[in-house]
């Protein structure tokens, strides 16, 4: 092999980049393979099927928000999974069952590296607790 010094440097850099997530995970405190358990919600079931909700809750929120704002009767959303059950289109509706944003929303969002900015404007139990003491 010629120009060995440079090639070895290159190989080290390449492997370093390829395995950087592994190195980070091994060295980072608080590594957990599985997502931490979410806070067990109160109530029997979610607005829609919970499995559907997991990937699609943002779409539902989006749809509910549009209806709530734009339709005079749209504030009340009838569940498609559980016909007859009607929910009000506010984010605070969610917190009636999921009593903590930190233990429910944030756990999953942080695990997946997502940072939605709903909570800049919408109320969370944590903010209420802080302000309404």
């Amino acid at each position: 092999m010629y120009s060995t010094k440079w090639v070895i440097l290159l190989i080290i850099a390449f492997l370093g980049i390829c395995f950087s997530p592994l190195i980070y995970n091994v060295s980072a405190p608080g590594f957990e393979l599985e997502m931490p358990e979410l806070d067990e919600p109160e109530g029997d079931h979610c607005i829609e099927d919970a499995d559907w909700m997991e990937p699609n809750h943002m779409d539902l929120l989006l749809e509910m928000r549009t209806q709530t704002i734009r339709d005079p009767g749209g504030r009340f959303y009838e569940s498609k999974t559980y016909p007859g059950e009607v929910y009000e289109g506010t984010t605070y509706q969610c917190f009636e069952c999921h009593t903590s944003k930190t233990d429910f929303c944030d756990t999953c969002h942080e695990y997946n590296g997502v940072s939605p900015y709903c909570w800049h404007c919408h109320n969370t139990p944590e903010v209420l607790e802080e302000y309404n003491r």
Binding site: N25, A28, E110, Y111, N112, G113
Partner: peptide, 9 residues
């Protein structure tokens, strides 16, 4: 995509 490969992010 690293956010899927590292924990905690």
């Amino acid at each position: 995509h690293l956010r899927f490969f590292i924990e905690p992010v």
